[in-house]
Simulated assay, not measured.
Amino acid sequence: MTIRPGAPMPEQLRHWMRAKAHPARSVPCPVCGAGEHQPCHLKTRNRTLTEPHPQRISDWALSTACCPACQVEPGIDCHDDGWARATVHDRRTQEAKDTAA
C-alpha cells in the first residue's frame, strides 16, 4: 500500500483519533485563530495549549446546546433580562458537555 500525503482518512478512524480532544475544537478559535480541529496556541505560536480558550468553549456551547437558564435555542446568544451576554451561561456549557459525552 502506498502512503500518500493528503490521502483521505476514513471517518471512523478520524473519529477515533479525535476522541480524546475537547469537543470545542470543532469550531475555530476567535482568540488565537486556530482552525477547526486544531489545538489552541499562544499568540507567539510556539506553545500549544492543552485546553481550548474559554471563548472557544463559549462559541461551541452557543452553536450546539439550548440554554436551560434563559431558554434560547442553539445559535442564539444568551441574555439576562433582555440584555445580551458576552459569554454563555455556565449551565449552557454544562448542557453542551453532557450532550457531547
Rank of each mutant, 00 (worst) to 15 (best):
P52C: 10
C29W: 09
P23N: 10
P68S: 05
T50H: 06
C70P: 09
H37K: 04
A69L: 07
W60R: 08
L62C: 05
A69N: 13
P5G: 00
Q38K: 12
M17F: 12
Q71V: 01
I57V: 15
P54M: 08
H37E: 14
P54T: 07
V72Q: 15
G35K: 09
Q12A: 14
A69Q: 14
R25T: 06
A69H: 13
L13K: 10
Q12H: 09
G33N: 08
N46F: 09
A34H: 12
C67F: 09
E36I: 12
C40Y: 04
V72L: 02
L42I: 02
R18A: 09
P5K: 06
T64S: 08
R25Y: 15
T44F: 07
P28E: 11
S58I: 00
N46V: 10
A7R: 12
R45F: 07
C40T: 07
C40R: 06
K20Y: 07
R45E: 14
P30K: 07
N46Q: 14
P8S: 12
I3F: 06
A7L: 03
A65E: 06
G33Y: 09
S63L: 13
R56G: 03
N46G: 15
M17C: 12
P10K: 10
A65H: 03
C32A: 02
K43Q: 14
R4M: 03
A34D: 05
H37T: 07
H41S: 09
C32M: 02
R25L: 15
